[in-house]
Design a binder for these strands. Structure first.
Lengths: 351, 351
DNA sequence: GAAAACAAGGAAAACGATTGCCTTGAAGTT
DNA sequence: AACTTCAAGGCAATCGTTTTCCTTGTTTTC
């Protein structure tokens, strides 16, 4: 003969104290406090007109039971989920993380959680995730990723606010937050000029990549603004160390008279640095070097430590999240916002 | 005189076709198909007994309206949210990303979405996120991050399944999935031995770091199994290129007779490679080199390309997600699981 | 030809929290 | 004493979906 088992929901409410995470409902809190469900809700949300001691009694009951309101039930009623989706179009890479951290920062403070989706550069996956996010009734969506060009809008006629971060939407009516890459290039060039360099070369990524062309154009324009020209035409290649080494080799072989090289990425710069070292050129003595991205492992691993341009990805993520929150609250902002870059001087451009 | 405005929910259901994302309810689908709400639900979920053409009619109506079931309502009823949380205890770094991708992979196929939370090594933030996840009724939680030692369990008595990935829980009853780092070290050593090396050095990270000591111990043990010993005692330092360069300098200065160096990380290996090159030592001619992590930018940037140990982080993430799904479905697995590493041979150990 | 069996689909009760409306009793007003 | 006023808190509708139990007809069976 077994003793009769108790119900799943213990009569003795104290029992729930020992089980964290078991969904405690507001009905149990109300029962413990000796009030109705509605009253308990009002007490916990500071609404309605209740006696202070009643409010307090409910609060205590909630605390003792470890009550946390069921988000699904709440959102069913309010229509809001306090949830946003973040879709990275290309794989989650080095660029997405700071963006994510920045966004999480801005959203987390407002109690909004983030669904992360990695579309891996696959339009099918992207649409799949979009539907998933919509079915979860996210309050908003942040689209990010790296591309050679502005990307097509993720969908037309969405009734959920969307903000593009780092990458921009091809539709100028969409809200995008991107780094001002021309500004970054200008800062690099001005910095080199201010340290007395005049014969500057520019080694960068592929010509079909938007970032490469924008940075190159701004570089040339800034120099022309000072009555100067690039020491040699822009060297377009890839975003790799190998290309940096190769490009440096080309410059050396051509006997180019250069006292500074501005590179389109830290990886390229690091390749250039190695090749120059091995050719016996001193950095920054003979040639000053500036990179782009301010990627810690690259700028620190480089010898000497690499001066670089920081796009403040975290700031972009934060900014995008703030704009998204504004849109959710009925204050949509349209158009592309650019954010300035920052120069981080290190030994590679010391006087 | 204005014409009377139509209601927000158009009488003419076709209108909704033009507005994606506006929450279409199953009631609207049912109305368009000319059935009751319950019937519509059964039709879409393949339950109940319905005439095939009715089922079809409902499906078409749902398609035309772009109906996607409200996840909150569904989860309210089922008690499941098809959602899991992923908490990275240290910042989202290089290690978390492949883990995340792997986990997302295993979960996404099962239609489960991931809430990503970055606790930034702050216990307060961690508990805050834990509460948030619980209030959202996640079906499970993956805890990840890098630490010098096994970490304390995130909470006791949780009724939500938890799986630790990459990092392990100090409680042996918890479910953890970690790389078999000793296996990785063994593979590295055996590979070096198989290419004829006998005088092997080991340069690695800080001695208080669990990974460093485990790898070092396995290295020595494997050598002893072959009747050999390390050419010089383990060199403990930091996980940086600078330390790699410094350690190589020490070895060279001491005139150590070494024909292979196994490094505790790719960054260390790269530093070692640079220092050896500059000292005129050929890789792999004079000294063979093996790294650890198989981090693309490091192994590719290194000259020559670096042989390395891959911990298969994506596989660990996938594995953790699968174990979590199993636990959610009532099949919990306890204890620590280790997963083998993989050697990726490249030029730095070519014969 | 009447009863039973069955297929098809409708009605309504969940799920948990919020909120507008209503009831109750006590205090204040004339 | 009878009325109004107000504080305090209960009741029930609501959100959108699923699911259980009914109610219909229709078909089979003896």
């Amino acid at each position: 003969m077994v003793t009769p088992t108790t119900k799943a929901r213990p009569e003795n409410l104290e029992e729930t104290l020992t089980t964290i995470g078991r969904a405690v409902t507001i009905a149990e809190v109300a029962a413990l406090a000796g009030v109705s469900v509605g009253t308990a809700s009002k007490a916990l949300n500071g609404r309605g007109s209740l006696r202070p001691e009643t409010r307090q009694r409910v609060r205590e009951a909630a605390d003792r039971l470890g009550f946390v309101a069921n988000a699904a039930a709440r959102s069913l009623h309010s229509g809001r989920t306090y949830t946003v989706g973040m879709i990275t179009t290309d794989s989650i890479g080095r660029f997405s993380i700071p963006l994510l951290i920045g966004a999480e920062d801005a959203l987390g403070a407002g109690q909004v959680s983030v669904f992360l989706c990695d579309a891996r550069d696959d339009p099918i996956r992207e649409q799949y995730y979009l539907r998933t996010l919509l079915s979860r009734n996210v309050d908003g969506i942040i689209v990010t990723g790296r591309r050679t060009q502005a990307r097509a809008p993720i969908a037309a006629g969405l009734h959920v606010p969307v903000v593009y971060a780092f990458i921009s939407s091809a539709d100028p009516q969409d809200c995008s937050v991107v780094p001002d890459e021309a500004d970054g290039a200008r800062r690099a060039v001005r910095h080199l000029l201010s340290t007395g360099r005049r014969r500057i070369a520019h080694v960068t990524g592929p010509e079909h990549h938007h970032s490469a062309t924008v940075r190159a154009a701004a570089t040339e324009q800034t120099l022309r603004g000072e009555g100067l020209d690039l020491a040699v035409p822009v060297l377009f290649g890839e975003w790799s160390e190998a290309w940096g080494r190769q490009a440096a080799g080309l410059l050396l072989a051509a006997g180019a008279d250069v006292d500074a090289i501005f590179c389109g990425s830290d990886q390229i710069a690091r390749g250039v640095a190695e090749a120059l070292r091995e050719a016996g050129r001193a950095i920054p003595g003979d040639v000053a070097l500036v990179g782009f991205d301010n990627w810690d492992v690259m700028v620190d691993g480089c010898r000497p430590a690499l001066t670089s341009i920081d796009m403040d990805l975290e700031g972009i993520g934060r900014s995008a999240a703030e704009l998204l929150l504004a849109a959710i609250n009925g204050d949509p902002v349209r158009g592309k916002r650019t954010r300035p870059c920052r120069l981080v001087p290190r030994a590679s451009t010391a006087r």
